Amino acid sequence: MNTRNTVRFSDTPARYDAVSRLLHWLSLLLLVAQFSLGWLMPDADSVKAPAGLVAWHVGIGTSLLAVFTARLLWAAMRRSPHPVDQHGVLRFLAAAVHVSMYALLLLVPLLGWLNASGRGWVVRLAGVWDMPQLATPDSPGASIGEWHSASATMLLILIGLHVFAVVVHQAGFKDRLLRRML
């Protein structure tokens, strides 16, 4: 048996697997669409039923929630590359940003779903399949639109920090960190 080409379960890959990379970049595309629609759509407080850009925003938001859920499930089942060798403070900051981003990638669409349900809107996964109503018009769900917006802003800031860190690793540390996700 050729042991040089044998992969052991304990081996840690140098890169993320193809599914992880696909889900990462798909998440990015959906986030770019979401933030673009969020800035371009009319004020959601004045909308009686989701139509046009608002309907697209809701549909893409539910798609993002589905992709992120798949991403979490896949991450639980596969082995990740070892963390980059860096100073303990940087490792802590990277972990804090990643955990916060993951939490907000779950929280932001959930708050949007709760808010849309509270407005009495029909929320559809990818704009196609009806999802359960999480709130009623007389519940607090209808009034958490500001929480949805504020948490989305925090998510955007964390994404900016994430991108900045990748640029620093590539250009400053020259450790080819980006290659792990390409």
Rank of each mutant, 00 (worst) to 15 (best):
L110G: 05
D11P: 00
L28M: 11
V19W: 13
G61C: 06
S36P: 05
G61L: 01
F92E: 07
R71C: 07
V89Y: 08
G118N: 05
F68M: 12
Y102G: 07
L93R: 04
G52F: 03
S63F: 01
G52W: 05
L30C: 03
T62M: 14
S46T: 15
Q86I: 08
G59P: 12
A66N: 12
L53R: 08
D11H: 07
P81F: 09
A44Q: 11
T69Q: 09
V67Y: 09
H24Q: 09
V97R: 03
G61V: 02
N115I: 00
S100W: 00
L90S: 12
L40C: 11
G38V: 09
W74C: 04
V19M: 12
T3Q: 12
V97E: 08
L22D: 08
S27G: 15
S63W: 02
A49E: 15
D43Y: 04
L111S: 01
L26N: 01
L22E: 04
Y16A: 06
S20I: 06
S46N: 08
P13H: 10
V89G: 05
M77P: 00
H98V: 06
R79L: 08
A95K: 11
L104M: 07
L110D: 08
W113Q: 03
A66H: 06
H87F: 07
I60H: 00
T6N: 11
S100V: 01
L28Q: 03
L106Q: 04
M41W: 02
S20H: 04
F9W: 11
T6E: 15
T69R: 08
W74Y: 03
P13E: 08
L72Y: 11
G59F: 11
L53V: 06
R119D: 06
T69E: 12
R91Q: 13
S63C: 09
A103T: 15
D11S: 02
L31M: 13
T62K: 06
V47Y: 04
W56A: 14
V97T: 13
R79A: 10
L26C: 08
M101I: 14
P109E: 02
K48L: 15
W56P: 03
T12S: 03
D85L: 12
D11A: 02
S20K: 05
V7R: 14
G52E: 03
V67H: 10
A94H: 09
H82Q: 13
A14C: 00
P81N: 02
V58N: 02
S10Y: 11
A49D: 14
A55T: 14
M77K: 09
A44I: 15
M77Y: 07
A116I: 12
A76P: 03
D85P: 04
W39I: 15
G61W: 00
R8M: 13
N115E: 13
T69C: 12
L72R: 07
V108P: 00
L64D: 02
